[in-house]
Design a protein around this nucleic acid. Structure first.
Length: 368
DNA sequence: AAGTCGGGGGG
DNA sequence: CCCCCAGACTT
C-alpha cells in the first residue's frame, strides 16, 4: 500500500526522465520535421553525409548541397571511386572543407576495411575521420536505431535550460555533465526519433533567441523557465579578461602651441598624430630639459580608453616648454591647427579639455 | 584548453 | 559589429 504513495528518488528520477522523452516524442510526431531530404531513405550512408554537412551548418543551407551531392555520389562506392577534386567541387561554398576531405577519406576506408558496408559499432564509426562522439551517436541512433545520445549545439542549449546549468558548456566539467544528462534523459526505444526530436526542439522551439516556451513539450520540467531566466542559458563564454596597459602622455605647451608626434604605422592609432607617449614617468623625465625649474610638470587626472583587445590607462603630464629649445623629434603646431590633424578621439578630447582649462589668453595656468 | 576551419543568419 | 550554428581536429 505504501508503495503506491511513496517513490524512491531513483524511481522518481527515472519517471521524470521517461516523461521528458515521452513528451518530446509526442510533440515530435505532430510538430517535428519529417520531410527533410535525408529522411527519405534513412540509410547509414545518407545519414552520414547529412550529419557531416550539418556540422556547424544550418539545415536551410545544407538541403541543396545534400541533394546535389547524393545525385553525384549515390552510394559510398561512388564516393570512394571519385577523385578528391570531384568531391570537393560539390562541397564548394559549404565551408569547413576538411569535412569534405574526411568524408572522401572515410569512404575509401569503408571500402577497404569494412567491405563497403557502413560499420555499425560505435568504436568503428567514431574512428572514421571526421566523426566524433556526437556524430557517431547520431548515425547509430538514426540509421541503426541504437540508443546513443548526441550532444550538439541544440542539445546543449536545450539541456542547459532544462537543468538551468550555471556554467559555460565549453568547460570540460560542464560538458561531461551535459553528456550525462543527454544519456539519462534518452529513455526510449525510439532512438532514431528521439535524436531527431531533440534537435528539432532546439531548432524550432528552444531557439537561441526568442524561444517559444509556451509551445514547449517539456516546459513543465524546465528549471530555467521556472526561474523565468530562460534567456540566461546557456551561459555564454566568459569574455577573456583584457589586459590593461599604462602609458604616460606628454602635453608640452608653449603659449598657443602644442607638441605632437606621428605614431608608427603599425599598432594602435597607426600613422595618426598624437601626444608623445612613454612607458613610465622616468622615461618622460629622461627626455625633458634637465636644466633648472623652467619646465613645470603638472599631473592631470588619468583616464582609461578601451580597445577590442586591451584597456589603456593614460596618465597625462603637462609641461610648459620652450619650443625653441626643444630636442624631441616631432612637430610644434598651434592648438587649433593640432585639432585639425585627425587625432585619436580620446587624445583630441584631452587636448580640448586641457585648452579650455589651462590656457588663458595664450598663457598657461595651472588651475583653470 | 585554445586555435583553426568558413560561410551564413540574426540581433 | 558580435555571436552562434546537427563539431572535429591539431597544437
Amino acid at each position: 500500500m505504501e508503495g503506491q504513495f511513496m517513490q524512491t528518488s531513483n524511481v522518481q528520477s527515472s519517471s521524470q526522465s521517461s516523461r521528458f522523452a515521452d513528451c518530446l516524442l509526442g510533440w515530435f510526431d505532430v510538430f517535428g520535421r519529417h520531410d527533410l531530404p535525408w529522411q527519405h531513405p534513412k540509410s547509414p550512408y545518407s545519414v552520414w553525409v547529412s550529419e557531416i554537412m550539418l556540422q556547424q551548418t544550418q539545415v536551410q543551407t545544407v538541403i541543396s548541397y545534400f541533394e546535389r551531392f547524393m545525385l553525384a555520389f549515390p552510394t559510398v562506392q561512388d564516393l570512394a571511386a571519385a577523385s578528391q577534386d570531384d568531391v570537393l567541387s560539390h562541397w564548394a561554398g559549404l565551408g569547413y572543407y576538411a569535412r569534405g576531405r574526411n568524408l572522401h577519406k572515410a569512404a575509401r576506408i569503408i571500402i577497404s576495411e569494412h567491405d563497403g558496408e557502413f560499420p555499425s559499432h560505435f568504436d568503428e564509426i567514431v574512428s572514421l575521420p571526421g566523426i566524433g562522439r556526437s556524430t557517431a551517436a547520431a548515425i547509430l541512433s538514426i540509421a541503426f536505431k541504437q540508443k546513443y545520445a548526441i550532444l550538439d549545439g541544440n542539445v546543449k542549449r536545450v539541456l542547459s535550460r532544462y537543468d538551468a546549468i550555471d556554467q559555460w558548456p565549453g568547460e570540460k566539467q560542464t560538458e561531461a555533465k551535459l553528456w550525462h544528462r543527454a544519456e539519462v534523459l534518452m529513455q526510449t526505444e525510439r532512438a532514431d526519433d528521439y535524436t531527431q526530436a531533440i534537435m528539432d526542439l532546439g531548432a524550432t522551439i528552444c531557439r537561441r533567441s526568442k524561444p517559444l516556451c509556451a509551445e514547449c513539450p517539456v516546459k513543465a520540467g524546465c528549471q530555467a523557465l521556472k526561474a523565468d531566466k530562460v534567456g540566461a542559458y546557456p551561459v555564454s563564454k566568459p569574455k577573456t579578461e583584457k589586459p590593461t596597459r599604462q602609458v604616460v602622455m606628454l602635453l608640452a605647451l608653449d603659449g598657443e602651441q602644442i607638441f605632437l608626434q606621428k605614431r608608427p604605422q603599425t599598432g594602435i592609432w597607426g600613422g595618426l598624430w598624437s601626444l608623445p607617449q612613454f612607458d613610465n614617468e622616468a622615461q618622460l623625465s629622461a627626455v625633458l630639459p634637465q636644466t633648472g625649474e623652467q619646465s613645470v610638470l603638472e599631473t592631470l587626472p588619468e583616464f582609461k580608453h578601451s580597445f577590442t583587445h586591451y584597456h589603456l590607462i593614460i596618465q597625462p603630464r603637462m609641461v610648459e616648454a620652450d619650443a625653441k629649445a626643444w630636442a624631441l623629434a616631432g612637430q610644434w603646431m598651434n592648438l587649433s591647427q593640432a585639432l585639425e590633424m585627425g587625432l585619436p578621439a580620446p587624445i583630441r578630447k584631452l587636448i580640448e579639455k586641457t585648452e579650455s582649462k589651462h590656457v588663458k589668453n595664450g598663457q598657461l595656468c595651472k588651475n583653470g
